[in-house]
């Protein structure tokens, strides 16, 4: 079951133009993030790295709690956005995210939660799909535990 949820997540994230990096543990994840930083940095691209609280398999979505403004901007301003997600945190579908959202919104302080699915995109000119408008041009999901 766990395996199929992760597989579905990867397929749906890719369908939304995200790039996925399945790694076995945190240590490997850190190396993967460093590699992305080095590669993109060499091309003069800024890289922002955050951690997702949950994933949603049905849509290939990362759920990022972004109450902290600086961290939030890290998913918006850089050309390249990297999100770390633990594969054990992947929920099956959108409705199953309700309890988590409710928990965030009833902690007695304000919250800002983003569902992020793929890089920013538009089709506003002649319906031609263009990736990378005001947000990131690339989204990399480093899936921790996504590989045995």
């Amino acid at each position: 079951m766990q395996e199929t949820t992760t597989d579905l997540f990867i397929a749906r994230a890719k369908a939304a133009a995200a790039q996925t990096h399945a790694v076995s543990d945190e240590e490997e994840a850190a190396r993967e993030v460093d590699a992305i930083r080095a590669e993109k940095g060499a091309k003069g691209l800024a890289v922002g790295v955050v951690r997702a609280a949950k994933g949603i398999a049905q849509t290939g979505t990362c759920v990022v709690v972004a109450d902290d403004e600086a961290q939030r901007l890290d998913t918006m301003l850089p050309e390249v956005s990297v999100i770390l997600l633990d594969s054990s945190d992947i929920l099956p579908d959108l409705p199953s995210a309700a309890p988590f959202l409710r928990e965030q919104q009833t902690r007695g302080r304000a919250s800002y939660v983003s569902f992020i699915t793929g890089p920013s995109r538009t089709a506003d000119i002649e319906r031609v799909s263009a990736i990378g408008v005001h947000g990131p041009l690339e989204l990399h999901i480093v899936l921790v535990g996504g590989r045995p």
């Binding site: 369908a15 290939g60 403004e69 992020i116």
Partner: peptide
């Protein structure tokens, strides 16, 4: 689309 790139939930005034 199955979902849009961003869905943002805001409750209250954050920092």
């Amino acid at each position: 689309q199955r979902i849009t790139s961003y869905v943002t939930f805001i409750d209250g005034a954050t920092a």
